[in-house]
Design a protein around this nucleic acid. Structure first.
Length: 165
DNA sequence: TAGGCCATCTGGTCCT
DNA sequence: AGGACCAGATGGCCTA
């Protein structure tokens, strides 16, 4: 997974499309297997049965088909859900300071770094010097925290964020 | 080539 | 009943 920056977004997209094509191929194969098991469509009788709203009254093959349709819909929803989750991870990653945009970071690493970064910020809030030099520290976000800090403080933060907890 | 990571499928459970 | 969420299984891609 790459970051949420413009170029890497496109990269992500391309990667995603490549994967999707492969996966779709797999899905098609599986679907074919399923449909191979299904008997031939018997026109009129089938259409009449489709008018029945209750699936329990459907014939066996139609029930099977209905289940498969529902499954496919559920799969699509699950894919969308996981896509949202992945994007959230990407956004979280881009909000981590001192992590270059093109850095490869697993989801687990992203969580760990975010966690350590939060700890770091909490530490800063408890720091007396920090409190005396900023009137409203809580309203500040990370890019501003670097101003007024020594090289040593910044590099120690880099070490902190660079280490996988 | 093994191992890590990821996307997807799937069945189960919970919630509305 | 249907959707959301979750966890396990599976298979592909990538890298050391």
């Amino acid at each position: 997974m790459s970051t949420g920056s413009g170029a890497s977004d496109a990269e992500d997209e391309e990667k995603h499309h490549r994967r999707s094509r492969l996966k779709k191929k797999i899905i098609r194969c599986r679907a074919n297997r399923v449909s191979d098991e299904e008997p031939e469509d018997d026109g009129e009788e089938r259409r009449m049965k489709q008018d029945n709203s209750s699936s329990s009254r459907l014939s066996e093959p139609l029930q099977k088909e209905a289940r498969q349709t529902q499954r496919n819909a559920a799969n699509a929803r699950e894919r969308a859900r996981m896509r949202v989750l992945s994007k959230a991870f990407s956004r979280l990653k881009t909000s981590l300071p001192w992590v270059p945009a093109d850095t490869k970071l697993s989801k687990l690493d992203t969580l760990r770094l975010a966690s350590s970064y939060i700890s770091h910020l909490r530490q800063l809030l408890q720091d007396e010097r920090f409190e005396s030099s900023f009137a409203h520290p809580v309203s500040l976000t990370w890019p501003f925290l670097t101003s007024g800090r020594s090289e040593e403080e910044i590099s120690s933060s880099i070490r902190l964020c660079g280490a996988t907890a």
